[in-house]
């Protein structure tokens, strides 16, 4: 039976099309989150700096300066790149989610395999008016596929669209 199997389609369907960008506020939300994460490290480096100030082992401001430069790079540069690396593509019967700077991942979930759908908003996301749409499938790998950084109304609209495809609510 395998001998007669048709060759793989040479031209993939609509899965390689242009990606839709996320809401621009997503980059801002990422920056705020990174800043919040960086604050304890900055405080720690300042404490270390003060503690070692009398020793004269290191030039003044070396530790705190290094941490500050790394934090600044993470806050200014990385979110913009992560924002441009992410994207999604929604078609009639499937959702494609692309993410990752170094480790790229390109996932397609057909709506007919979605078990349930979440729309989440954390405090930072609420402030920026964006939301995360999460599709849950029954597969062990990709049991939940999250798409962050959608405008909140859009996320709800997409949820309704996808829900309309799930002919029977499960679990």
């Amino acid at each position: 039976m395998d001998a007669t199997s048709p060759p793989l389609p040479a031209v993939p369907l609509d899965d390689e099309g242009a990606l839709t960008k996320l809401h621009p506020n997503y980059a801002h939300a990422l920056r705020v989150r990174t800043t919040l994460t960086a604050i304890p490290f900055l405080i720690g480096s300042l404490v270390l700096e003060t503690a070692l100030a009398g020793e004269g082992l290191l030039p003044k401001g070396l530790i705190a300066g290094t941490v500050l430069v790394i934090a600044a790079a993470l806050i200014i540069r990385i979110p913009a790149r992560r924002y441009s690396a992410r994207g999604y593509q929604i078609s009639a019967d499937r959702l494609r989610v692309v993410r990752g700077l170094l480790f790229r991942s390109d996932t397609v979930v057909p709506f007919s395999r979605v078990q349930h759908i979440d729309v989440d908003q954390g405090p930072i996301e609420r402030f920026f008016g964006i939301a995360t749409l999460t599709l849950h499938t029954a597969g062990n790998h990709n049991s939940s596929v999250a798409l962050p950084g959608l405008g909140e109304p859009l996320a709800r609209e997409m949820r309704e669209t996808i829900r309309a495809h799930i002919r029977r609510e499960t679990l």
């Binding site: 170094l102 480790f103 390109d106 996932t107 395999r113 499938t137 029954a138 049991s143 596929v145």
Partner: peptide
């Protein structure tokens, strides 16, 4: 199957290959 993912690390992108993860229940 429940989903299909094409995943690529830095080396994989450089050399044009990928790991295909299929979502299989269980």
């Amino acid at each position: 199957l429940h989903s299909v993912e094409i995943a690529q690390g830095p080396l994989a992108r450089l050399h044009g290959y990928a790991t295909v993860h299929l979502g299989l229940a269980g």
